[in-house]
Amino acid sequence: MTALVTLRNVTKSYVRGKQKVEVLHGVDLTIETGEFLALMGPSGSGKTTLLNLVAGLDQPTSGEVLVAGDRIDRLSRGSLSDWRARHIGFIFQFYNLLPVLTAEANVEVPLLLTNLSKAERRRRVQVALELVGLAERARHKPNELSGGQQQRVAIARAIVSDPTLLVCDEPTGDLDRQNAEEIMNLLQALNRSQNKTIVMVTHDPKAAEYASRELHLDKGLLTNDTRRAA
């Protein structure tokens, strides 16, 4: 396996009021291609900050962030946008679907950033929706779907452009147990059958059990790194 994500001595600090708060203190981390990593830890431990750095949503204060062969800590904001479009699929806790668009139009959004023809975009949207088991709800708007279904649409949107890395921020945080299990099964299947590399932040130990590796953060430091046999 090859390293898809490499963090070297990464720190991140914010200024809150007059105080400088360091959220990550010199983190070193490697994530291999095909891994399903669950990032766990208490609130304020730096999980989401770490996820944002890996996803190119934020820049480190110091250190190197190498993802898919690119030093993304050196990219400008504009280049980082393009880079995210090419490499990252996002799954959010509250799905973040666009309320005015149908499920299929929501899934199509990332493809609008590519040069694909309309027909090809349609075909890929169809495939992605079938993969998450929602082909028959393609014409429904988010408010006509249950929470679990909305998250499936969000997953379809995340995978439709075949990104290098899927990042999930509390993907089951807004779902009941049954829906949460279905979503985790889907993510696990994507990881196992499509070899998608997934980095997931979660509070939920049950969700973390689906991952192949569990990483614990506390006060900005990595504390525990467990690999699980498939």
Partner: peptide
Amino acid sequence: TLRALGFG
């Protein structure tokens, strides 16, 4: 969300 997905 759109910015995250890569819209400029």
